[in-house]
């Protein structure tokens, strides 16, 4: 899921300073699990804005904020409240925020959250990054552990000289990704695989902005 963290509320106030009234949009998916876009988070934000002299015309938690069309349909019932607002504040990830940018052609849209990474929830509201969405997965060669993400240098060929007692040079509490890979390959009896020098990464596979269409149209399906 996309891991988000709410911005410093005062920095939000500063960004929206020239507007008076706002409509709030959350998200019931990742941002709710992060506690940054669920109903309670929206209510807290509304309270904060009101206590700072702002108006909140309404709020809504769409099912999946990054699903632009669905969110647009869900927002129909809040048409008046949206229209009454000077600006929209979105409490989801950067993708959900930009759904709103697309939906509200003539209203400014502001993010309340910072989008941090694609993460795994290890315990309730505890998240760790495991995948960098690099465009070409190599973990079939690295014991199912992604060195591009788990190593701060994204090394593909083994541990760097900064590894110390199995720990990472950059964050000494974190195990070295390549020591983890080594230990797992050893346990799996696949140490030979670690002898391969993985080729330099083809970054063109993850060129931005990514775009993909997997839908088969009706004609194709009936054929």
């Amino acid at each position: 899921m996309i891991i988000t963290k709410q911005k410093d509320p005062n920095s939000i106030l500063e960004t929206i300073s020239k507007y008076k009234s706002f409509f709030l949009i959350g998200c019931s998916e990742c941002a709710s699990l992060c506690g940054t876009g669920n109903e309670d988070a929206l209510k807290d934000m509304a309270g904060f804005l009101k206590s700072n002299g702002k108006e909140v015309t309404g709020m809504m938690v769409p099912k999946t904020g990054c699903q632009t069309l669905g969110t647009k349909i869900e927002l129909k019932k809040d048409k008046d409240a949206c229209e009454a607002a000077d600006a929209i504040i979105v409490m989801s990830c950067g993708a959900g925020t930009q759904s709103a940018t697309e939906i509200f052609k003539d209203k400014p849209v502001y993010p309340a959250n910072d989008s941090l990474f694609l993460g795994n929830m290890t315990r309730f509201q505890m998240f760790d990054e495991r995948c960098s969405l690099c465009g070409e997965c190599i973990i079939g060669k690295t014991a199912g552990i992604c060195p591009i993400t788990n190593c701060p240098k994204g090394l593909l060929v083994g541990p760097c000289g900064g590894m110390s007692d199995g720990k990472c040079e950059v964050s000494p509490d974190t195990p070295c990704a390549w020591v983890r890979i080594y230990e797992r390959q050893k346990a799996l009896g696949n140490l030979e695989e670690m002898k391969e020098v993985i080729e330099p990464k083809d970054w063109s596979k993850g060129q931005k902005p990514g775009t993909l269409a997997t839908r088969k149209d009706k004609k194709e399906l009936t054929e």
Binding site: K153, L155, V157, G161, G162, E169, V197, E199
Partner: peptide, 28 residues
């Protein structure tokens, strides 16, 4: 040919570390 200390060790901690390739690949 070396990979290089991470930017977090230095005096421009906000820099984007590159590591497009690494020591072994650089030797190649």
């Amino acid at each position: 040919c070396m990979t290089g200390d991470h930017v977090s060790a230095g005096d421009h901690k906000e820099a984007k570390p590159v590591y497009d390739i690494e020591s072994v690949q650089l030797l190649r």
